[in-house]
């Protein structure tokens, strides 16, 4: 163990190494590492934000879906109601139409009957008059007994 010039040489080498590290090694490395740490932190924050956004969007989607479902049920219900109404109305119209048709037919038939009766009455009275004329040709003057004939005709 003896001291010699190695001591000085080593000290100088050491000083140069420290200077070199201070100048060329330490700053770029630490700057880069700080930068990376910052980037990682930013990335994590962005991921967290994205997650929150996603959650909100999912909630909104669920809301919209629920609303749409409610709306569609409502629409179906009202459509069914409207359909029933239409059917009812159609039935009602048909019934009224039928009734009207029946009534028309009935009145027509009555009129026919009346007309036939009238015609029958005319013919019967004409026949009766003709028969009576034939029977009474000789003894009864038709002009003389016109009022009698008229009363008979009325009774028919």
């Amino acid at each position: 163990m003896e001291f010699n010039a190695t001591l000085l040489g080593q000290a100088i080498t050491f000083a140069i190494l420290v200077w070199f590290t201070m100048k060329f090694v330490w700053p770029p490395l630490t700057n880069m590492m700080d930068e990376r740490a910052k980037r990682i932190a930013d990335g994590l924050a962005a991921a967290e934000r994205g997650k929150q956004d996603l959650e909100a969007a999912e909630k909104r989607v669920a809301d919209e879906l629920r609303k749409a479902r409610e709306q569609s049920t409502e629409i179906v219900l009202s459509a069914e109601k409207r359909a029933n109404q239409i059917v009812e109305e159609a039935k009602e119209t048909a019934r009224a139409e039928g009734a009207r048709l029946v009534a028309d037919a009935k009145s027509e038939i009555e009129q026919e009957v009346l007309r036939a009766k009238e015609a029958l009455r005319q013919q019967v009275s004409a026949l009766a008059v003709a028969g009576a004329e034939k029977i009474l040709r000789r003894e009864i003057d038709s002009a003389k007994h016109a009022d009698l004939l008229a009363s008979i005709k009325a009774e028919l």
Binding site: M1, E2, F3, T6, L7, L8, Q10, A11, T13, F14
Partner: peptide
């Protein structure tokens, strides 16, 4: 082994 030389270690500690 430089660090087994007292010159090297003293150079550093003196620095």
């Amino acid at each position: 082994v430089p660090s087994a030389d007292v010159n090297a270690t003293f150079a550093m500690s003196l620095s």
